[in-house]
Write a protein that binds this DNA or RNA. Structure first.
Lengths: 346, 346
DNA sequence: ATCGGTTAATGAAACGTTTCACCACCGGCT
DNA sequence: AGCCGGTGGTGAAACGTTTCATTAACCGAT
């Protein structure tokens, strides 16, 4: 068991350098009022003892926390991993430590993480909520600045960063329609997720003459029977538009199992691009979300709040890019792999 | 700016409940010496004020840290993301907070992260080093238990968890050989990475009659000319064995660009499996590393150290599984997609 | 020599907890 | 009545910092 009092403290350093504790503190914090010879003595002592300041005491005494927290629904999701990674880099370059937690898509866990993060008194929090009811789970008197990202809570009283879901979904559907598709099946996890809802609404808004169907497959189901039946039946849709990458994968495997050829028997488009979508052939038409930009935006909003900005909550919508590939062949000028055309949605 | 003294403290709770600070502490820590009626009063006050204990003070006073740190080379790598995610779950279920940091494959950043983590006085650290020289970067008198995972430092004086690289690589090469392959090109980032070195050595040990070539492509190069030349030339190898997923991707795209058909013109195998490898056709034969098991193992080793185990450092090698797919067709009993055969390497 | 003014260093209080020694009380025993 | 042990509660010290008021030293000007 590592004993509590283990390791060198400022006292040891002070003793070893023959100065007072206050002076050591001044040196460590780069205050100007210390003579150069003393600075050197202190630094030598620090080096010699391998001293590292104890943040618990430091941050406790000076209310300045220099710690930020982020909660994502799932760290394994490459999109969220990229978000956290980008955020960490930004935070560090501003001198903040970042502690990341995963809610595993469980509201209860999210609330728990929120609580345990708060115990460290972070200067700010960034939350990617796992459902719309985040507001209910927020501690009553949360004094910490909070930025909500990716998914929009039902009651929004905080800064918000999200992607322009509706516009991007509309772009996809419009192009499907322009190519002559008359019947598109939209597949999403659940309309309870704001992203899914907005994407669906965006699709509807751009449907025009096209008949749009919707299937909610939930979260953990491998390939729900409802979807399989719809694809196997005679009334098979001309296109399937999946509203997140997990759903796209499920659908892709299901199509293969049924024996339908993507891009020929049925068109396929995905919201949320993954690496494999450009590797399979034909490639899958997909909406790429600007994750790094989102992290960037979230961090700068948070920084502003930490620095005392008291303006009313802001909402930022970021534009997505759509990449058309062979899975929606009728609208692809060049059906060749690697010759992707990028269209900005919105 | 959020003021230091903001928010309710134990004092406020004590005041509000009409008891002493010590009693509040006792209630919060579930000590038995408090009467039921008082417990209720305190809990009511906590609820009413929305009080959350300040970990900085709490952990400072009681030397008990209940915080663990993990440093990975790259959070965006799904393997490391899974590692962190698994670890977080384990840590939390043991009552530990986990703070994760990424070294972005940069030794300097790794050292920096190590330092800033140490400032929080974690009870233990898990490091996936970005190169073999970790030992040089470790603080001199590091009192914190440390478990090194995935990559093996040159000088190993800590608990170690890694994958049985050599055995798995040997399994792959043996099967290539058994299928009649006479000439295999091995592609890796750099032999400076212990994993890559071990995999190469494993391949060599199982080569037998087979001629083995090696190309080191480095880390950020898209598709180095040396590799392209080797594949384009007349002396093109019968198989390419890539030692990590990034390299596999590079090679896969390069092969496609050159116009070689994987599984027919050239066989392809990968160490480190990614989702897309089972989605493309033909599927890519790949070694799957037991990431969750590795995290599990690392955590239990760390827990043991935290709890005072003083036995000499242990090394744990975990077995990988190899999945043969269409990219190495000659050894695949059933060349059909979805009919993967799993062989345990080692 | 004395005085103000600046500079360099320090002592001690405070941050919000935990912990330990201590106290007040009570009921049961001789 | 006096004593004893147990129960339930508290005051105050301590954890390792930061910070502020204070002191000590020195310099140039009177």
């Amino acid at each position: 068991m590592i004993k509590p009092g283990t390791g060198p403290s400022m006292r040891s350093v002070a003793l070893s350098a023959g100065v007072s504790v206050a002076t050591v503190s001044n040196v460590l914090n780069g205050r100007a009022t210390v003579g150069p010879e003393i600075v050197e003595r202190v630094q030598a002592a620090v080096e010699r003892l391998g001293y590292v300041r104890d943040n618990r005491a430091s941050r406790l005494r000076s209310g300045d926390s220099r710690l930020a927290g982020v909660i994502v629904p799932d760290l394994t999701n490459p999109m969220f991993a990229t978000f956290v990674s980008t955020l960490e880099q930004l935070a560090r370059s501003d001198g903040y430590d970042l502690v990341a937690a995963s809610s595993r898509n469980d509201p209860a866990e999210e609330a728990e993480r929120l609580r345990s993060l708060r115990a460290w008194r972070p200067a700010g929090l960034i939350v990617l909520p796992c459902d719309g009811a985040l507001a209910e789970r927020l501690p009553v008197g949360l004094m910490t600045p909070l930025v909500v990202a990716d998914r929009i809570p039902d009651a929004a009283l905080n800064d918000l960063v999200a992607v322009d879901n509706a516009a991007a979904a509309a772009t996809v559907v419009r192009h499907l329609g322009a190519g002559g598709c008359r019947d598109c099946l939209v597949v999403g996890t659940s309309l309870a997720i704001s992203n899914v809802r907005e994407r669906w609404e965006g699709a509807v808004s751009a449907a025009g003459e096209m008949a749009l169907g919707l299937i909610e497959v939930g979260f953990d189901a491998p390939a729900p029977e409802a979807l399989a039946e719809r694809l196997r039946g005679a009334a098979r849709p001309g296109a399937v538009f999946c509203l997140d990458h997990q759903t796209t994968l499920t659908t892709y495997l299901l199509l293969e199992e049924i024996g339908l050829v993507v891009g020929r028997d049925v068109e396929l488009a995905s919201f949320d691009e993954m690496e494999w979508m450009r590797l399979v052939s034909p490639g899958i038409t997909a909406v790429r979300q600007p994750v790094e930009e989102m992290a960037d935006c979230a961090w700068s909003l948070l920084r502003r709040r930490i620095d005392g900005d008291a303006r009313p909550p802001q909402t930022r919508r970021l534009r997505c890019a759509v990449t058309f590939r062979g899975s929606t062949p009728r609208y692809t000028p060049s059906p060749l792999r690697g010759a992707d055309q990028i269209t900005t949605g919105g």
